[in-house]
Simulated scan of single mutants.
Amino acid sequence: MRPLIAHIDLDALRHNYRLARRCAPYSQSIAVIKADGYGHGALACARALADEAPAFGVASLDEARVLRRGGIETPIVLLEGIFSADELAEVDAQRLWMAVHSRWQLDALQAYTPEAPIPVWVKVDSGMHRLGFAPDEVEAVWQALCDAPQVGELHLMSHFATADAAASEHYARQLACVKDLACRLDAPLSLANSPATLAHAEAHGAYNRPGVMLYGSDPLEQANAVSRGLEPVMTLRAEIIALRTVGPGERIGYGGRFCTRAPTRVAVVSAGYGDGYDRHAADGTPVLVEGRRATLAGKVSMDMLTVDVSDIPEARIGSEVVLWGRAANGAVLSVDEVARHCQTISYTLLTGVLPRVPRRYHPSH
């Protein structure tokens, strides 16, 4: 088998979820597992958290269906609601909770007769300007849903644009907007995403929605004492498949981007952009070889990448190469650090690991 595996540490996932709960002991924490559990495998993650999470958050009915077919009976919130009125029958049958962010969704719900009232999360556009009702519309929408026999428990929700920043007036305005509405409506509130869970206790509500932090990525602009306690869940582990030493002035890889300045020992590693490793990774992007830091040398290829291991004499064919995560000796390379070298964010790296990379779970799910 080609030596490239994404190891998923379900104990680390549970650790991070419990950290989210400790951050907000008076809130319930919905585990957000959309985008196939941020690339980690939604069903495996849901099974690992099924005894702890009061609900799971997903982006679509398709994602909820995977969980229900896998035996997950925990409540599931459709964070974007339905995409067509036809989906309401399955929302009802699967006992899902749903966001309502647009007038057409409200109209569709009022025209439908469910077997049991459907819990609804009213989304407010408090300043993100993606989904949600304008603040001056919310009271009328809330009242219409209160009056609708189709609707069960009601919550108010919104999403922060800048909660990751160390200081943000925009965050403060969003918070004030939604808290004012919640007070006037006497509505249970869900505001806190991962950064707000970690750093903004004033945003904690009836339900928080930790997402990327569950997978060990720190979403804060500046790490704090709590976020430093996150543990990596995915370790993307490859091996050295070839070694060679080249002289000074030699160019490595497509386009010859990397040019050696001295005799250089180059390792070829069994991973590339065809596996989801970012092709934009710059020379100098860190990896761990036998638990020691080394750096990318040359452009990433589809199935391979090249690393300068001149300072790691023990590197050999078959040596472990950790592209992010935890090495066998316990050394950790943060996916956030790798993402910075790729001019992107951890979300794109984690969700970008392609299906041809096998996931291996520990403990077995």
Rank of each mutant, 00 (worst) to 15 (best):
E320T: 09
P188W: 01
Q110S: 08
V266P: 07
L4F: 03
N193T: 14
I240F: 10
A48T: 07
V32W: 12
G253N: 05
A165C: 15
V335C: 09
I317R: 15
P355A: 13
H155T: 06
V151D: 00
T285P: 10
F83E: 15
G39D: 10
D180Q: 14
A50L: 08
A85P: 05
R173C: 01
S227K: 09
S301W: 04
N16I: 10
A24E: 02
A196Q: 03
V307D: 01
I33F: 00
V268F: 04
I252K: 14
A196I: 09
A31G: 09
Q105Y: 03
E239I: 00
P117V: 02
C23N: 10
Q174F: 01
R209N: 02
G132T: 00
H15Y: 01
R244I: 00
E139F: 02
R257S: 07
I8G: 09
Y38F: 11
L354P: 04
T306A: 11
M1Q: 13
L220Q: 08
N16R: 07
R251H: 13
A339L: 05
A116W: 03
L189C: 13
Q105G: 02
G211Y: 00
V138P: 01
G229D: 08
P248V: 11
T245L: 00
C342V: 03
A271F: 05
D278T: 14
I241D: 14
R326M: 02
A31R: 14
L61C: 07
P195G: 10
P248G: 15
P117Y: 08
L354M: 14
E221P: 04
A55F: 04
Y207M: 05
A238D: 12
A134W: 01
D275T: 02
M304K: 15
T344H: 11
Q222M: 10
D136N: 12
D311P: 07
M1C: 14
H170N: 06
L305W: 04
R95W: 05
H200Q: 04
R251T: 14
I118V: 08
V307G: 03
A148P: 06
V287M: 13
R173S: 03
G81C: 04
V151M: 00
H129N: 01
L189D: 05
P117N: 04
P210K: 00
R356V: 08
R326Q: 09
A196G: 05
